[in-house]
């Protein structure tokens, strides 16, 4: 993990309006870092136009 990761995480928590204890913040950060590769995979996918959101 990098300082960039920490800055990005802090920004995302702010954007989400999360007010966390120091302990929860660390636990969440670890989970978030662990999850980033999956999220990157999700964001890298380019759905076809007909792949509309589930109705």
């Amino acid at each position: 993990m990098t300082d960039d990761h920490r800055a990005q995480f802090d920004a995302e928590c702010r954007a989400a309006g999360l007010m966390l204890s120091a302990r929860d913040r660390e636990l969440l950060f670890d989970m978030w870092v662990d999850w980033l590769p999956q999220r990157d995979r999700l964001r890298a996918e380019v759905p076809a136009p007909e792949e509309e959101p589930w109705r």
């Binding site: 989970m31 999700l42 964001r43 509309e52």
Partner: peptide, 22 residues
């Protein structure tokens, strides 16, 4: 932390997941 992770899901992520589900 598992529940807080849901707060970090953007609307775009949620919709992307819906489209991949399709």
């Amino acid at each position: 932390p598992r529940v807080y992770m849901g707060a970090l899901v953007t609307a775009a992520d949620y919709l992307r997941a819906q489209r991949l589900r399709e």
